[in-house]
């Protein structure tokens, strides 16, 4: 595979042709914050938290392929504040009750809040009326917590390739649902995978609750991204 050399925040790095900025950066020990991105899934450019400047233009680093000589700006104050603003938007757009959520401590939205030192959102809470649906067979979907990243849509499919999860509606009313017929046929492993791929606590496998004690959860001690950052 041919090598591509480009620059992130003045540091010259090398990636492989076909890689996106996020992927190449990770391999080079540079963390670009992401939320909708998930290793192995087709990137979708949804959350926009990975926005970087490429030659001065704002681009989603998760969907933009690297190219020779590209100049990328990542950890600059202007972008950091806007990324933080997006995290804040996600917090006010849903109903994120961290103390009651099974995902707390392992939640990527929360972890981004911690990483950005977010004390309280700059935007007013919208308190939308959203549904919690526990009538499924294998899982529960709490749309209060959903950040619409579509990891479930992209990553969890039936054996024949049909989508088990899909987005409904549009605008701020858009919401995730599962296909009842296909959901009921999910294996336990697939249901667990759906829960684990969800960055927040919107998809919970039934009969599983708080599993890891406070202090030992994923983001209790060190910020998200510190496993990548060199």
């Amino acid at each position: 595979m041919s090598k591509i050399t480009f620059e992130i925040d003045g540091k010259e790095i090398t990636g492989k042709a076909g890689q996106t900025i996020v992927e190449a950066a990770r391999e080079n020990g540079i963390y670009i914050p992401v939320l909708c991105w998930y290793e192995g899934l087709k990137p979708a450019g949804i959350c926009r938290i990975c926005t970087v400047k490429v030659g001065g233009r704002n681009m989603a680093a998760c969907t933009t392929p690297i190219s020779e000589g590209m100049i990328v700006e990542n950890a600059i104050p202007e972008l950091e504040d806007m990324r933080k603003a997006l995290v804040e938007m996600l917090f006010v757009e849903g109903n994120h009750m961290c103390p009651t959520c099974e995902k707390s401590g392992n939640c990527e939205l929360q972890a981004l809040g911690y990483r950005f030192g977010l004390l309280a959102p700059r935007f007013p809470y919208l308190f939308p009326k959203r549904a919690m649906d526990a009538t499924y067979t294998k899982i529960m979907i709490d749309t209060n917590r959903c950040v619409q990243c579509r990891r479930c849509v992209r990553g969890i499919t039936a054996k024949d390739g049909r989508h088990i999860f899909a987005m409904q509606d549009r605008t701020g009313h858009s919401t995730i649902v599962a296909d009842r017929e296909l959901e009921a046929k999910m294996s336990d492993d697939l249901a667990k995978k759906a829960m684990e791929q969800c960055p927040v606590g919107a998809i919970i496998k039934k009969e599983i609750g708080f599993a890891v004690p406070i202090g030992k959860r994923k983001y209790d001690k060190a910020p998200i991204g510190s496993e990548i950052q060199k």
Binding site: G45, M89, L90, L126, G172, S174
Partner: peptide, 15 residues
């Protein structure tokens, strides 16, 4: 008319 795909347009316009 926001399609709801990306965060800033979906939530930002409401705000």
């Amino acid at each position: 008319e926001s399609c709801g795909w990306c965060t800033p347009c979906r939530a930002g316009n409401v705000i």
